Amino acid sequence: MFRQISTKMSLPKLVRLPSVRLLCSTHHQLLLPSIAPLTVPRRTLIQSEYRRPGQPKEDKFPWQKINFNFSKGLEGIKKHFTLLKNEFSDRWVGPEGKPILEHMLEQNRVIWEFRGPESFDQWTLSSDREIGGQSEVYLKLGRNNNTCFLYGTLSSTPPRDGETRYSGYCSMRSKQPLASFDRKKHYDWSSFNTMHLRLRGDGRPWMINIATETYFSHQKDDIYSYFLYTRGGPYWQDIKIPFSKFFLTHRGRIQDDQHPLWLDKINTIGFTLGDKADGPFQLEIDYIGVCKDYAHTEEFAYEMNKRNPEV
């Protein structure tokens, strides 16, 4: 009796176990392959490189863009070792190769001046022709080879690529200063509080853009801007703009979270024209410098949103 009951009880177990295995194998073969593999993006949208509308994508690896040239390599080695030698020698003289007393008492400094064709090596031009627009911008020396003459034609007609809706800009921007072996070098203007320019234009408004070194990758497109209004005519303008007047923008959009300009790590400065007034333009620049205005005591001209406001 006991054996029969044990046989009847063990029989269903022998029959059910293969069925369970069969269902498990069937579920493993039918359901798992139907699940799509997870796709992980390489970068987020805000951290990806900005590509202008209408510009084709470059599917090249970084090493494919390098031009291997033996003679060019020797010139580069000679150039970088010369810069390295100057860096070591300047440290013995003082900050930036100036005596320490002169550096402490310095109140004015000319950063860029145009006294020959070699001064254009520090600047680059761009316009909406890069995205298929019709604007033109050129750069040449002014009269007596002592000024920079920026001129061209502005056109707000968008390209017919089906993507771009707005167009019409021309800009001039300084290059990133580099130390030996292509290390980034920054301008330190922490001892000054005002930008000093001597120029004359045709009455158009220009935007002055200052780019600083950032700590995070999503801040690489942050730019501090301020509008410059030229009065036109043959007379020169001595313009002083406090650094406290520059406001923070990101890809052309003014940010709600504003903070003062970081003067110890300045990378580039640029001039942009985009006033939607089609026609010729011109801007002549004598020099661009910085100065210390003791009468200006303002730290920042705009409201800063505090996350934890003081009571």
Rank of each mutant, 00 (worst) to 15 (best):
Phe2Val: 14
Phe2His: 14
Met9Ile: 14
Leu14Val: 03
Pro18Thr: 00
Pro18Tyr: 00
His27Tyr: 13
His28Gly: 10
Ala36Val: 10
Val40Tyr: 06
Val40His: 07
Arg42Val: 10
Arg43Met: 12
Arg52Ala: 14
Gln55His: 10
Phe81Arg: 14
Lys85Tyr: 12
Lys98Gly: 09
Pro99Leu: 15
Met104Ala: 14
Met104His: 15
Glu106Lys: 07
Trp112Arg: 07
Phe114His: 01
Phe114Ile: 02
Arg115Gln: 13
Glu118Phe: 10
Phe120Ser: 07
Asp121Asn: 14
Gln122Lys: 13
Trp123Val: 02
Leu125Met: 03
Glu130His: 11
Gly133His: 00
Asn144His: 15
Thr147Trp: 00
Cys148Met: 11
Phe149Ile: 06
Asp161Pro: 00
Gly162Lys: 04
Gly162Leu: 04
Tyr169Ser: 04
Ser174Gln: 01
Leu178Ile: 05
Phe181Cys: 08
Asp182Met: 09
Tyr187Met: 02
Leu197Gln: 07
Leu199Tyr: 03
Asp202Trp: 01
Pro205Gly: 05
Met207Ser: 14
Glu213Asn: 12
Tyr215Ile: 15
Ser225Met: 12
Tyr226Ala: 08
Gly232Ala: 04
Tyr235Met: 12
Ile239Phe: 10
Ser244Lys: 06
Ser244Glu: 06
Lys245Pro: 01
Leu248Lys: 01
Arg251Ile: 08
Gly252Lys: 02
Gln255Tyr: 08
His259Val: 13
Leu261Tyr: 04
Asp264Gly: 12
Ile269Asp: 01
Phe271Cys: 03
Lys276Pro: 03
Asp278Trp: 02
Gln282Phe: 11
Leu283Asp: 01
Tyr287Glu: 05
Lys292Phe: 13
Ala295Thr: 15
Tyr302Met: 03
Glu310Phe: 11
